[in-house]
Amino acid sequence: MPSRDKSITDMPKKRSTFLLSVLCFGMAFLYIPMFLLIVYSFNYSKIVSVWGGLSTRWYISLFESEEIWSALMLSLKIAIVNATFATLFGTLAGLALARFRHFRGRTLFTGMISAPLVMPEVITGLSLLLLFITLGDLIGWPEKRGITTITIAHITFSLAYVAVIIESRLSGIGETLEEAALDLGAKPLRVMMDITLPLLAPGMLAGWLLAFTLSLDDLVIASFVSGPGSSTLPMLIYSRVKLGLKPDINALATMIILAVAMGVLIAGWILIRQQKQRERDAQLAGAK
């Protein structure tokens, strides 16, 4: 790495009108659509884009809709199981990539981890569906497609994301602590349990959350591998908005955006606080 005496952050801060205006434009571009989505969810009118006065009627109809509740529950179930397994498998895969230098078939393994990240969803969905159909013909499993097949499909692509997070976190941590423990005579498995995994815990949490969101968000792969009677929330939303705007979907979107914003803000606040704490610790250490 180059010496980090200076970075772009320390550059003399001349205000650049150009940079500032692009930044404002970009942020407006990212946030105005979401803002409008929220505003129109409180619209009384049945035609989403025509303002008809303030109302919460779409929230009420949303809460009363059994279809949406059952789709939400299905999606949450899949997302939780998916996130747990993906974190488990993805952590193992990330450990293998970052810490086990040589094992048989490493090149293939690296390829299989990075390919799902960039594979178009339509291809992943199609290929998994064809696998399930072939398996069904050969061994009689899966008998019918639904929650299980969707969960398997989600684990397959989520674990790749988790593996990448874990791998980059492991190379960020470095191996000094592990080497120290090994030098002091700890067995490799003990080192893994007592040192590597605790250090990895934040990365695993981030991986779990990412896998959870990816699963909640997925429409294309789920619509390929699901069967009759098992609609996830994105599938339900898609079938409703396919033909136009639906005010209760605006209400649903508002609740999702607010929930996510809260989560991200809390996470961000914790991160910033940790950062400041670390800076303070570093200062204290320097003062001594």
Partner: peptide
């Protein structure tokens, strides 16, 4: 950090719903 968070936040919300927002 705040600006970075603002860039990351849309990534965590539903992709489908963000496309839907443009329909309106």
């Amino acid at each position: 950090y705040l600006l970075l968070l603002m860039v990351i936040l849309p990534f965590w919300t539903s992709f489908l719903l963000r496309v839907y927002a443009w329909m309106g």
